[in-house]
Design a protein around this nucleic acid. Structure first.
Lengths: 201, 201
DNA sequence: TTGACTTTCGCCTTTCCTTTGCGTAAAGTG
DNA sequence: CACTTTACGCAAAGGAAAGGCGAAAGTCAA
């Protein structure tokens, strides 16, 4: 792809950021304001240049119709469903629209996997914070010390560390302020095991 | 999928939220009330536009028949170079073979980003642990509180939190056992800012 | 049939994009 | 060195979509 000037790069980055943030493209006036340009013609010219160099696409005379053209997206990545939120003690809040999220292949286990968003700081001592995405491998069993999505007595769904102890099961939050939960093995059903984490700042 | 305008995005977001909350779509009148629109014709036109752009589906003349079409967008992955390891206090160990690693696009802020692997627990209080991958945006400046890759006097490269304090710069490890480093602004050169984290179990 | 909704028809206002014309500066070229 | 090209910038005008209104007509399920 053709090389960009400094100014063009700045504007392209702004477009990227704006679209990511708002879900729609900025108007020429908004772009101009961001860069203290008082003439729309200047902005228009920039967009035309970006288009000629193949970085963006525009529909003629359509409001906010700028689209970024993905740059050589050569990614071994899978699209996994983002099923909702999970918190310690609260059930999964399923998201109505089956949203999808891209996850690098090497972060995904072998079987069917999905993604949940963590709510709360119950796993803070395992370096998982509020808002993180956890990649969950769909499994019915777990090894000691693995982090699991557990279903308790058909009701609560929680994210905890898993330990088997003489016939019973201990579900351990990774937060010193929270108590472990010890129950009979029959009462707990494992829904999946956490195999990866992603965080966005 | 075609780009949305600001208004269209607002309405689409509302539809999403409403359906998730109630389990069924809002009526035109309910949408209109939410946006203080006194004419249903306006609402109707919005829905028609959203439909033409491929974001919703409607059965003809059927009450509350709006359905969201799952947005497959936002789900690519980029291949970023994995440049090596970074630790607090030690320089980057460049990996000879330019290894690449797939990263979801939404974890990458702008272009020109790369990935480093964290060595040691110097950022443990920021929920970054030994072995984590950090996605770094190539930038020369940073805001207070951002996590940066900093070059000290042309020698050491470290991962720290960045604070500007009356002419000086404080580089703060996120580990209670480690001391902050306060130096003149000229001695520190920012190489990039951490915008995302990935972890594999 | 009736009540709750959705469609359609004109017509107006606001927002946004495009174009035309002019300038400056830097970089490349005969 | 003069000459051209390209990037960057300003101002204002014209026009196309997008956003909006009210009223009337059409559908559907109960």
């Amino acid at each position: 792809m053709l090389p960009l000037t400094k100014r063009q790069r700045e504007i392209l980055d702004f477009l990227n950021e704006f679209i990511q943030q708002h879900g729609y493209a900025p108007s020429l006036e908004e772009i101009g304001r961001r860069f203290s340009l008082s003439s729309l013609a200047t902005v228009h010219k920039h967009l035309t240049n970006l288009q000629e160099k193949g970085f963006i696409k525009r529909a003629w005379n359509r409001s906010r119709s700028v689209e970024l053209i993905p740059t050589r997206a050569g990614g071994r990545a899978l699209e996994l469903p983002l099923l909702g939120f999970v918190a310690a003690g609260a059930p999964i809040e399923a998201v109505a629209t089956t949203e999808m999220i891209a996850v690098p292949e090497d972060l995904v286990g072998k079987r069917d996997s999905y993604v949940l968003r963590v709510k709360g700081d119950s796993m803070i001592d395992e370096q998982i914070r509020d808002g993180d995405y956890v990649i969950v491998e769909d499994r019915k069993t777990a090894e000691n010390g693995e982090m699991v999505i557990a279903l308790l007595g058909g009701a609560d769904v929680t994210l905890k560390k898993f330990y088997r102890e003489n016939g019973q099961v201990r579900l351990q939050p990774a937060n010193a302020a929270l108590q472990p939960l010890v129950v009979d093995a029959e009462q707990v059903q494992i829904q999946g095991v956490v195999v990866g984490v992603m965080r966005k700042y």
